[in-house]
Design a protein around this nucleic acid. Structure first.
Length: 849
RNA sequence: GCGGAAGUGGUGGAACGGCAGACACGCCGGCCUUAGGAGCCGGUGCCCGAAAGGGCGUGAGGGUUCGAGUCCCUCCUUCCGCACCA
């Protein structure tokens, strides 16, 4: 062999930064990603990924969501689907206001500037977004329809106003978001003033009307954990509403109804006290003069705690007696009324009957304050008077009621029914269902959002803005001031309006809508983003919806994804859309955390800038690396240490494609077929590997298993690498394999595969056509079929031998063969074979004694 | 605290209840290079052993099974959500 033969052939290096922009531009020119929504010649596929908030820059987390979704889009197109894959921006939101407050830039300018930059960054991914359908929620042509929906909801009784507590900064006169309340002392993020709770009239959407239907997931294929989380979030409980009556005392006339919800009406005789939420409307009336000071102090303190703190069972129970009693409707007993922060105003009726014997929280409370504990449910074998060292909450089939008057000795479930029935006949109770989920508070006391289209008139009260007057536009300029409250309140042009009913001067609503309203219908708007006739093009809705595949973070499991389902059902009831569920299939990818394992955020300084990585490795390497990292639903801390391996992989594909005849100077075996292989066997082995890889990769596309997909493509490439420079390099089998390899890479490494594809076409003298308009290949079942396996043989569960077995042998033949193997005989020596477990094609386990 | 998810080599991870560690990173060795932060080949869970081979190993403890990383129970740790961040 001459030295020249060992020299590496000079081929172009893989230069992603040169290749990628060129193809991105070409695809744009060809309109490759524009979807003709009226084309019904192919089956439709609506692919949706959660639209981003225009925070300023894409971070690697955006790539983690988008690039595999983009691969789905490309794969579906190769399989003959008409894919619609739109994108937009969730453009209202707090960060734009924070920027306005901190640097004086107007929210809209800040947002639009960010969108401009993020569009540019999205292009560098090589994503197949159809930009012609882009939606930007802060534009009047979008939020106009939020307002229209609001009016429809109002008309249908799905929107209403009610008092609700908010976090309030008494110095700045603003309502604070949760993230604007800092530290354990709960102070304002801007001025450090301790935050107080304040009750405001607020707008709500009546999502609880749909609670039962939201518990059903008919016809949709969603991950089990998300369904469980939504189910628990809705938290449907069956039980009874029971009417207690306030007892007469020196300071209170008595006779008022005090309603409680309980899931355990069977334990009614065990109620030894009552607990109201500190916010309960009757607290004031029931407080005795002697208790007043203590009660007031407790109420103030309770309002400083968050709900999570209040519900924590770790925290010692606190509470104060009101100095009043209530009367238990089943036995006429007087029991004291307390307030305690573990009872929430928003759940049930905001009041409970406390049964310390059979509820852990009530038990802890009774212990702490020396309140009586009376057992009313006893499992068989216990006496009614046994001292309890904890609440008995279990349910067993042979427990009975005790200390329960005429209901004693009844089985508990029967007792529950009987007690409820008796109360019902006396008008003092009824079976009831309550949900943990609360109506959706959609009002925000902030200027940067969709104005709620109502007007307050001294004469006519709350007057909806007439449809013809929509949109109610935001002013172009907000006057933010350090202590100024909501700028809309200071904007006479916005604020002052004539009442649509009586024409007299009136005041506009200054509350705006929660951004979750925007994100509860944006995918319909993609179908006709500039439609000024209707929010949603009903015809296109019927063709394209529901969304076939939705991708996005699991952190949206209960809020966005539940609101979206609610809005879909409500719009269906209003006749706006034809479907009842918005998203047929859902996939929740994991989150990319910072290198420190914490959530990526600018303030932590742990954000990974993808532009920098693209410049260094190219988008295709980043795409593959993110897919190769691990299962898509898992996410993980950002750790770029494996990125070189993926880049190397692409370079190896580059080498085997463009220089199959080259040899490796560093490997003495280079250019020789592996030991014992003739060219024919080698060609077959390569083809078998190619087709098996294709089978696996196809399967992995269906399950979004990107990491093993890339691994399998690496294996195939490694095999080609070992055959480079041999007799088979560049032959028919080789060419077929390269062709399959590039097609398999097309959805995941779109620029790279396009480049090599075009070079091969040019080399073959063929006319150029994009690899992305090719069909996904089919594997040859004959090549994929297995004709021999290495059968693992265990003795008592321990691996002892691997036996080559041709397919087609009978079980008896295989067992006979296995028992003759020297290693097996050695392990059976002096022992008795008790049993042979033979799982055909998997293993043989010989059980001995 | 409540709800959801996850714990496997030095690292990311692979494994229809059936060969634990595929594929990579890193590291070690070799080759090739004027040079390498380029490229190629080989090795690499831990312990004993020169090797052949053997033993031990999937957060901890128990259970089911011929067989458990995988299923069940108890516990520990980490991450996500908890209603005005999106």
């Amino acid at each position: 062999m001459t030295t020249e033969a060992f020299e590496r052939t000079r081929i172009d290096r893989y230069e992603p930064t040169e290749i990628e922009p060129r193809w991105q531009q070409r695809w744009d020119e060809l309109g490759l990603h524009h979807t003709d929504l009226r084309d019904t010649s192919k089956p439709k596929f609506y692919l949706l990924t959660m639209y981003p908030y225009p925070s300023g820059d894409l971070h690697i987390g955006h790539w983690y969501i988008v690039t595999p979704t983009d691969a789905i889009s490309r794969y579906r197109r190769m399989n003959g689907w008409n894919v619609f894959f739109p994108v937009g921006f969730d453009a209202f939101g707090l960060p734009a206001e924070n920027a306005a407050i901190q640097s004086g830039i107007q929210p809209r300018d800040w947002t639009m500037r960010n969108i401009e930059n993020m569009r540019r960054q999205f292009r560098t991914m090589g994503s197949t977004f159809d930009w012609s359908s882009e939606v930007i929620t802060c534009e009047p042509e979008y939020y106009c329809w939020n307002q229209w929906f609001f009016l429809k909801f109002l008309e249908a009784g799905l929107a209403y106003r009610q008092m609700a507590p908010v976090d309030w900064c008494p110095k700045d006169h603003v309502v604070l978001a949760r993230e604007q309340v800092e530290g354990p002392n709960r102070v304002c993020w801007r001025c450090g003033t301790p935050v107080i709770k304040r009750d405001l009239e607020q707008w709500f959407f009546r999502i609880t009307n749909y609670a039962d239907e939201l518990l059903k997931f008919d016809g949709i294929d969603w991950p089990e954990p998300i369904r469980v989380q939504q189910t628990n979030w809705i938290g449907r409980s069956e039980g009874a509403e029971v009417v207690f009556t306030t007892a007469e005392s020196e300071h209170h006339a008595g006779g008022e109804e005090l309603r409680v919800f309980t899931t355990r009406p069977d334990t009614l005789f065990g109620a030894t006290f009552m607990v109201l939420a500190p916010e309960h409307p009757m607290v004031d009336r029931l407080t005795s003069p002697a208790q007043r000071a203590e009660v007031d102090a407790y109420m103030a303190q309770a309002r400083r705690h968050t709900e999570i703190e209040r519900l924590s069972t770790d925290r010692p129970k606190t509470g104060v007696p009101l100095g009043s009693d209530a009367i238990n409707p089943v036995n006429g007993e007087r029991i004291p009324v307390w307030i305690a922060d573990y009872v929430l105003a928003g759940y049930g009726t905001g009041a409970i009957m406390a049964v310390p014997a059979h509820d852990e929280r009530d038990y802890a409370f009774a212990q702490r304050f020396g309140l009586p504990i009376r057992r009313v449910v006893a499992p068989r074998g216990t006496s009614a008077d046994d001292v309890m060292d904890g609440a008995y909450v279990a349910h067993s089939t042979d427990e009975r009621l005790v200390n329960s008057g005429s209901y004693s000795e009844m089985p508990a479930p029967e007792g529950a029914r009987a007690i409820t029935a008796e109360l019902e006949s006396r008008g003092l109770g009824k079976t009831a269902v309550t949900t943990r989920i609360r109506d959706w508070l959609v009002g925000r006391q902030r200027p940067w959002g969709t104005p709620i289209p109502v007007i307050y008139c001294d004469t006519d009260g709350i007057v909806p803005v007439p449809e013809a007057d929509l949109p109610v536009k935001l002013p172009d300029h907000f006057d933010y001031r350090p202590e100024g409250g909501n700028p809309l309140l200071r904007d006479p042009e916005f604020l002052n309006v004539d009442c649509p009913k009586c024409g007299k001067p009136a005041r506009r609503e200054t509350d705006t809508m929660d951004t979750f309203v925007d994100s509860s219908w944006y995918w319909w708007r993609y179908l006709s983003p500039h439609n000024d006739e209707a929010a949603i093009d009903r015809e296109l809705d019927e063709v394209w919806c529901p969304v076939d595949q939705y991708t996005g973070g699991a952190e949206h499991a209960v809020m966005h994804l539940l609101y979206a389902r609610f809005v879909c059902k409500a719009l269906n009831d209003l006749g706006v859309v034809w479907e009842r569920e918005p998203f047929k299939k859902l996939f929740n990818q994991g989150q990319i955390l910072g290198a420190d394992g914490e959530r990526m955020s600018k303030s932590r300084g742990n954000v990974q800038d993808p532009d920098e990585l693209v410049k260094r490795y190219g988008a295709d390497t980043i795409r593959l690396f993110l897919m190769f990292m691990g299962p898509w639903d898992q996410g993980g801390a950002w750790n770029p240490s494996g990125i070189d391996g993926v880049h190397r992989f692409l370079r190896r594909v580059w080498t085997v494609t463009l220089d199959p005849a080259g040899r490796e100077a560093g490997d003495p075996e280079s250019g020789r077929l592996p030991e014992g292989q003739d060219p024919e066997a080698a060609e077959r082995a390569v083809r078998v590997a190619a087709h098996r890889t294709l089978q696996q990769v196809t399967d992995e596309h269906e399950g979004f298993r990107w990491n093993t997909m890339v691994a399998h493509l690496m294996e195939l490439t490694n095999l080609l690498m070992r055959h480079r420079g041999t007799e088979i390099a560049g032959g028919t089998a080789w060419e077929e394999t390269i062709r399959l390899l590039l097609l398999m890479l097309a959805p995941i490494a779109p620029h790279f595969s396009e480049e090599l594809w075009s070079r091969r076409l040019a080399a073959a003298g063929e006319e150029w056509r994009s690899i992305h308009t090719e069909s996904w290949p089919h594997f040859d079942p004959a090549l994929v079929a297995v004709d021999q396996i290495e059968l693992p043989v265990q003795v008592n569960g321990k691996l002892r031998d691997l036996v080559p077995v041709a397919t087609g042998l009978s079980q008896a033949e295989i067992e006979a063969m296995v028992l003759e193997r020297p290693k097996v005989r050695q392990n059976l020596e002096g022992k008795q074979v008790v049993r042979i477990v033979h799982v055909p094609g998997r293993l043989v386990n010989i059980v001995v004694r």
